[in-house]
Simulated assay, not measured.
Amino acid sequence: MLRYLGKRLLSAIPVLIVVGVVAFLLSHMSGGDPARVIAGNDATDAQVEAIRQQMGLNQSVPEQLWSWFMNLLHGDLGYSYVLGEGVTPTILSHVFPTLSVAVLGELISLIVAIPLGVLASDKHGRAADRAVLAFATLTTSLPSFLAGLLLMIVFVLNMKLLPASGFVYPSDDIGGYFSHLILPALSVATLQIAIIIRMTRSSMIDSLGSDYIRTAEAKGLTRARQLWVHAFKNSSISILTIVGQSFGELIAGAIVVETVFNVPGIGQLVSNSILRRDYQMVQGILIFVALVFIVVNLITDVLYAVIDPRIRERSF
């Protein structure tokens, strides 16, 4: 197991290098002078130049890139001269709201999509199957920010059941924490629901046509047992794959939805950092998001081996 995990972690190094180079170059190609932004319009050229030297902007781009990578190897994502604080603690202070929205959105997606996908596979070609596919098509065509606005109209303006925006930490008010999370989580869950429904339905249809299902039916097993114990277990690898791959998209959706619901997460941080031309913060956020993707994929690979012993034998 440890050997396998080590190989997976080593394979992530090239990904981080590529992401780091791309993030660095994109942030430096955005135009403008961050030193001038920090110093203000009334600053003299000498003051701006002093800030440029402090930030290392007087070096060539390759020299800046090398220095940034050397700091990254020591776990240092840099220092935000705009905010006057380290990049890492700033990102960590904004992570919890984003992960809260993404994780709750994932749970909602699984709770809604898996039963609907199993139902559609069991009623393949019938009215229930067509209704589920229509629902999946509707959620696919509904962007997360538009879903957020529609949910806000229904549950905030019309029904007045939930707060329109903001975020409350669970340590302050656990009830307020969940009430502020429901609408953003539902918004990011829309696309995920459609993806999981389609994958569950497709995988279950293949499983239900297998010989072991016909054998289970001949033995007199109930339909529920055929579906959930036998067919779903063999379809879980495909479902887990799509859940792991699309979790990054769900985080991206959470970042967009944060703007709609005024959630103080990574989305607001990266948006403000781009406007302030805070290169160090933008680079750090991109590296952090890449690390999240890598960790999610690693967890998914390990779960493969837990679910299917054949994968464990080949991998370990």
Score class of each variant (00 low, 15 high):
Ser203Lys: 06
Met204Pro: 15
Ile205Thr: 15
Asp206Ile: 14
Asp206Met: 14
Ser207Tyr: 10
Ser207Ala: 15
Leu208Ser: 11
Gly209Tyr: 15
Gly209Phe: 09
Gly209Met: 14
Ser210Ile: 02
Asp211Gln: 13
Tyr212Pro: 02
Ile213Ser: 02
Ile213Cys: 00
Ile213Met: 10
Ile213Lys: 02
Arg214Val: 01
Thr215Gln: 05
Thr215Asp: 00
Thr215Glu: 02
Ala216Ser: 12
Ala216Cys: 14
Ala216Asp: 04
Glu217Asp: 11
Glu217Leu: 07
Glu217Gly: 04
Ala218Gln: 00
Lys219Asn: 02
Gly220Asp: 04
Gly220Arg: 00
Arg223Lys: 08
Ala224Asp: 13
Ala224Asn: 12
Ala224Gln: 05
Ala224Cys: 09
Gln226Ser: 07
Leu227Met: 06
Leu227Ser: 04
Leu227Asn: 02
Trp228Asp: 00
Trp228Thr: 05
Trp228Leu: 04
Val229Ala: 06
His230Asn: 06
Ala231Asp: 10
Ala231Trp: 02
Ala231Pro: 08
Lys233Ser: 10
Lys233Asp: 07
Lys233Asn: 11
Lys233His: 08
Asn234Gln: 10
Asn234Trp: 05
Ser235Phe: 13
Ser236Glu: 09
Ser236Gln: 10
Ile237His: 10
Ile237Thr: 04
Ile237Asn: 07
Ser238Ala: 07
Ser238Phe: 03
Ile239Val: 15
Leu240His: 03
Leu240Val: 07
Thr241Pro: 14
Thr241Ile: 13
Ile242Ala: 05
Ile242Thr: 08
Val243Arg: 03
Gly244Leu: 11
Gly244Trp: 11
Gly244Arg: 06
Gln245Thr: 11
Gln245Arg: 09
Ser246Arg: 06
Ser246Val: 03
Phe247Ser: 11
Phe247Cys: 10
Phe247Asp: 13
Gly248Thr: 09
Glu249His: 11
Glu249Lys: 07
Glu249Met: 13
Leu250Glu: 00
Leu250Trp: 01
Ile251Lys: 03
Gly253Pro: 06
Gly253Ser: 09
Ala254Met: 01
Ala254Leu: 02
Ala254Asp: 03
Val257His: 11
Val257Pro: 09
Glu258Ile: 04
Glu258Gly: 03
Glu258Thr: 04
Glu258Pro: 00
Thr259Pro: 06
Val260Ser: 13
Val260Cys: 10
Val260Pro: 15
Phe261Tyr: 06
Phe261Leu: 01
Phe261Thr: 01
Asn262Phe: 09
Asn262Ser: 13
Asn262Leu: 14
Asn262Met: 14
Val263Lys: 02
Pro264Glu: 06
Gly267Gln: 06
Gln268Phe: 12
Gln268Cys: 03
